[in-house]
Amino acid sequence: MAEARRIRPFAVRHLPGFPTMALICFVCLYAPIITLVMFSFNESMSMSQWGGFSWRWYVAAWENERVQQASLLSLIVATCASLIATTVATAAALGTTRTRRYRGLTGIYVLINQPLMVPEIVTGVALLIVFAMVKVWTGYTGIGYLILAHTAFCIPFAYLPIRARLESMDATLEAAAADLYATPWMAFRRVTLPLLWPGILAGGMLAFVISLDDVVITEFVKSGGQDTLPTYMLSQIRRIVTPEMNAISTVFLAISIALVTIFFLLSRGKKQ
């Protein structure tokens, strides 16, 4: 036994203090979230004293007209942005994997993934300036700007899972389809697309979640009176903190967890 212990390979798990470190990390990550969820069910107004269980704040949030409007805007923007981003990302993924390697392909990867690297605040300011000019020219102040901005930063999130799926897919299948008289479009529709579908769904969902909880860029791009759920919450919290925010956050959390779980299951399914 002693012999076996000595030759055990290096593993971070066996370093002294590892369990303590892990515990601290988990507590830091989840304790605030648990507190937040807990107090969303608080009967009293207090954020620190427990006054008994109640759905009161959920009802209040549900009946709050501004919350309703903000939620609707969030959903519209997230839906439109993730749909457009996923379509564009699918085309981009096909264009970067289903071709012979060409010069500048790496450059294109970097270009597509750029929004992951550029600080959001920079994108926000840049869009603010450009859209301000466009607004002056056209006079249009609708939600188009928000959708456009969200689409832009959602593309890489949709692109990555789709490309991963395409790369793990045997390109011989498409050759086989072509060999069996399928035109490029038919081969795409009957072979590539059905096999790519889990990747597209995963990419779309990821884009949706990312769009849903964006604050920084939305804050810069939104026109007066427009508020998505996160920016509405931010403006509320500046004035008064009520457990209503906790309730909204908890619902938000639940939706995100559900989507991320589905995303995880879908991307795991591709490896089989």
Partner: peptide
């Protein structure tokens, strides 16, 4: 897809999302 020539691939390249019968029908449907 314009050549009356068909291939049996080394890796078979069967369509994994179709049944045996659907695989065989593919060329005729196209």
């Amino acid at each position: 897809f314009d050549r009356p020539v068909n291939t049996v691939f080394q890796s078979y390249a069967l369509f994994p999302h179709m049944t045996v019968a659907q695989n065989i029908a593919f060329g005729l449907e196209m």
